[in-house]
């Protein structure tokens, strides 16, 4: 049974050795094994090709494969580290690791910066923050006058853009989140601390013993 299971795993595109992934992330080997169960479920939800498409990612997040969401798109793009248009298992584990309670704070700060630096210019620009605010308002069906949006943007950039050049660089972002730590709450998933309890089924598929021998 172990051999059969191993063969199945190696046939999954992007499958990486759990021992190697554990050494590169905040997860233990058994936690990587548990994440593989979650990964298999998500990656086979629309097309069973062993890769997570954007549609499958949206389905897992919203239980609705057609729901378009700017922020989910940004998260997907960052998880798709190899820029292949899909998330493979290695990408999935390494990206989720950033959200582990024990992951280094610097990794969380960098990830959040990239999330908001939508065009990858190296700066979070006012038009990007405005676009995200408008997307949030649409998502939550909140209405806010244009003037109110501009007031929020003025306040945000007055607080974060210390050199007042109209854009937030990485150093400014680091200072800003140090003063506003609640902004990084979204970068930690408490679930990840005890994932083997969340996915007990991994126990029946674990390769940990055979790797150890």
């Amino acid at each position: 049974m172990g051999c059969f299971e191993s063969k199945v795993r190696r046939e999954v595109p992007g499958y990486e050795d759990p021992v190697v992934l554990a050494s590169e992330t905040a997860f233990s080997v058994s936690e990587v094994e548990a994440l593989f169960e979650l990964y298999k479920s998500i990656s086979s939800s629309v097309v069973d090709d062993g890769l997570i498409s954007k549609e499958e990612f949206q389905l897992a997040l919203f239980k609705n494969r057609k729901k378009e969401n700017l922020f989910a798109n940004r998260i997907f793009d960052l998880f798709d580290a190899k820029r292949k248009g899909v998330i493979d298992f290695g990408d999935f584990v390494k990206s989720l690791s950033v959200f582990h309670p024990n992951a280094p704070l610097d990794e969380k700060i960098d990830f959040a910066f990239k999330l908001y630096d939508m065009d990858g210019s190296g700066f979070i620009e006012r038009h990007e923050v405005k676009q995200m605010l408008i997307a949030l308002l649409c998502e939550s069906e909140m209405k806010l006058a244009d003037e109110a949006i501009e007031v929020i943007l003025d306040k945000t950039f007055s607080d974060a853009d210390v050199n007042q050049d109209g854009k937030i660089d990485l150093d400014e972002w680091k200072n800003f989140v140090a003063k506003n730590p609640s902004l990084l709450k979204i970068m930690t998933l408490p679930y990840l601390r005890d994932i083997t309890t969340t996915f007990p089924s991994f126990v029946f598929h674990s390769e940990v013993d055979e790797i150890a021998t």
């Binding site: 940004r74 998260i75 605010l133 949030l136 806010l144 945000t156 609640s182 679930y191 969340t198």
Partner: peptide, 26 residues
Amino acid sequence: ITPVTMNAFELISTSQGLNLGNLFEK
């Protein structure tokens, strides 16, 4: 608290699209 007293990132971080916890719900 009115939204205009908050900074944009506080508001943005409330987006459902940023809540990866949903990935773990069956």
